[in-house]
């Protein structure tokens, strides 16, 4: 089983992402409702992939990416950004910080599944 960490404060979006991932064979989901929660979960769970939102209440997604990419334990984990069309600048910064892919909401579930397969499959 490969483990995917979803960091997203909107519970409906989180459920959507989780349902999309769980529809695939061999993947399980760990959900974080905030950046803080993701920070707590990272050392406890052997995560294979991180999917994060950018706008979150405690720390933002860019700060999470910076933390992950500067931490030898997590540096190699692939990371996708979920963003909206209007946050283009933030998305670019995320990629500059080392995010591997981005998805712009709304997106087709199949698109996410393809990306996951490309990195973990």
């Amino acid at each position: 089983m490969k483990k995917i960490l979803i960091t997203e404060d909107s519970s409906a979006t989180r459920s959507f992402l989780a349902a999309t991932i769980e529809a695939m064979e061999g993947y399980e989901v760990v959900e974080a409702t905030s950046g803080f929660e993701a920070l707590r979960l990272l050392p406890r769970e052997q995560v294979d992939l991180i999917i994060t939102d950018i706008n979150m209440p405690d720390i933002n997604g860019l700060e999470l990416i910076s933390y992950v990419r500067n931490n030898p334990n997590y540096r190699a984990i692939p990371l996708f950004i979920i963003s909206t069309e209007s946050s283009e600048k933030d998305r670019e910064r995320g990629l500059a910080l080392g995010a591997n892919e981005y998805l712009v909401k709304p997106f087709q579930p199949e698109r996410l599944q393809e990306l996951i397969l490309a990195y973990l499959g």
Partner: peptide, 19 residues
């Protein structure tokens, strides 16, 4: 952030006008 979340949410669930 609220407007942003609502937009993402509505887009995801296909409620075009709300989005």
């Amino acid at each position: 952030r609220s407007a942003h979340s609502l937009k993402g949410l509505a887009g995801m669930f296909g409620f075009g006008e709300i989005a």
